[in-house]
Simulated scan of single mutants.
Amino acid sequence: MMENKWKLNGKTALVTGSTKGIGKATAEELAALGATVIITARHAEDVEKQVEQLRKDGFRAYGTAADVTLESDRLKLFRFVKNTVSGLDILVNNVGTNIRKRMTDYLVEEYHHILNTNMHSNFALTQLFYPLLKASKDAAVVNVLSVAGLTHLRSGAPYGMTKAALTQLTRNLSVEWASDGIRVNAVAPWYTKTPLVEQLLKDKKYYQDILTRTPLKRLAEAEEVASAIAFLCLPAASYITGQCLAVDGGFLINGF
């Protein structure tokens, strides 16, 4: 019984944006814990490569290319999951993007792109997969947020808005879907070594500012965020719902 609490044998998981960064590390972590993993991202060649590597490592994996900001691709992804593995126990909403600017400098197209990618697509995808999650009777949804949704960062207002909105979506759905056996939680990372921030960290002063504000004095590894996501999916976390777990090296709690 104790061992089963820390395994995902027999579970099926869908991780969006799972060919790079946190999404890739999460897919690998869930697979290592025994789950069958569905890989999806925009580029087919990246999906095929990730699926091939997971299978080579002895894990059960399937994949299909999809841009979850497009309704047609979300429907295609739903059909793929339903036809390939029939059910779904875990959904990790990992897809996200950002354009860092001051409020007054955003073009309306940029604003809508951030909102559509970070917020609308995650809402629509979670809504779409609800029937499969409900049928599981023991499902977990984990939304990948950011500390930018919990406090001010120099990441731009639209990014912070979308992450804050997903925090509230997490809370609402955790109550609304509790009777369906669906737990809904979130993780909020601080700066993590991923392709999304590589360019930003080339600014040595900005990088030093990050370390100064972080008690653990380093960035997170993608695998450290993935471990937190995986924990929230495990039977060991069966009484945890509606929570947002900061994976931030102490950033949020750091005072003067």
Score class of each variant (00 low, 15 high):
Met1Tyr: 11
Glu3Met: 12
Lys5Trp: 13
Lys5Ile: 08
Trp6Asp: 15
Trp6Thr: 15
Leu8Ala: 09
Asn9Met: 08
Gly10Glu: 12
Thr12Tyr: 08
Thr12Met: 06
Ala13Asp: 07
Leu14Cys: 10
Leu14Gln: 06
Val15Pro: 03
Gly21Cys: 10
Gly23Trp: 03
Gly23Leu: 01
Lys24Val: 07
Thr26Glu: 08
Ala27Met: 06
Glu29Ala: 14
Ala32Gln: 08
Ile38Val: 15
Thr40Ala: 03
Arg42Tyr: 01
Glu45Phe: 14
Glu45Lys: 15
Lys49Gln: 15
Val51Cys: 07
Leu54Glu: 09
Arg60Leu: 13
Arg60Trp: 00
Tyr62Arg: 10
Gly63His: 10
Ala66Arg: 02
Leu70Ala: 06
Glu71Ser: 12
Asp73Met: 02
Arg74Met: 03
Arg79Ser: 15
Arg79Met: 06
Phe80Tyr: 14
Phe80Ser: 00
Val81Tyr: 04
Lys82Met: 09
Asn83Lys: 14
Gly87Glu: 12
Gly87Val: 11
Gly87Trp: 03
Leu88Val: 02
Ile90Trp: 05
Val92Thr: 09
Asn94Met: 10
Asn94Arg: 13
Val95Thr: 12
Lys101Tyr: 05
Met103Lys: 00
Asp105Ile: 01
Asp105Gln: 14
Tyr106Asn: 01
Leu107Asn: 08
Val108Gly: 03
Val108Ser: 11
Glu109Arg: 13
Ile114Val: 14
Ile114Gly: 03
Ile114Trp: 09
Asn116Arg: 05
Asn122Trp: 00
Leu125Phe: 13
Leu128Val: 10
Pro131Ile: 04
Leu133Lys: 02
Lys134Cys: 11
Lys134Pro: 07
Ala135Ile: 02
Ala135Val: 04
Ser136Gln: 09
Val141Ser: 11
Val142Pro: 07
Val144Lys: 00
Leu145Val: 15
Ser146Ile: 04
Ala148Ser: 14
Gly149Ser: 11
Arg154Trp: 12
Gly156Asp: 02
Tyr159Arg: 00
Gly160Gln: 05
Met161Gln: 12
Thr162His: 13
Thr167Glu: 08
Gln168Glu: 09
Gln168Arg: 15
Asn185Ile: 04
Val187Lys: 06
Ala188Tyr: 01
Ala188Ile: 04
Thr194Cys: 08
Pro195Asn: 11
Gln199Tyr: 06
Asp203Tyr: 02
Asp203Lys: 04
Tyr206Cys: 01
Asp209Ala: 04
Thr212Phe: 05
Thr214Asp: 09
Arg218His: 12
Leu219Gly: 01
Ala220Asp: 02
Glu224Leu: 11
Val225Arg: 03
Leu232Gln: 12
Leu232Thr: 13
Cys233Arg: 04
Cys233Lys: 02
Leu234His: 10
Leu234Glu: 14
Pro235Trp: 08
Ala236Trp: 08
Thr241Leu: 05
Gln243Pro: 00
Cys244Thr: 15
Leu245Lys: 08
Leu245Thr: 09
Asp248Ser: 02
Asp248Gln: 05
Gly249Lys: 03
Phe251Lys: 07
Ile253Glu: 09
Phe256His: 14
Phe256Pro: 15
Phe256Leu: 14
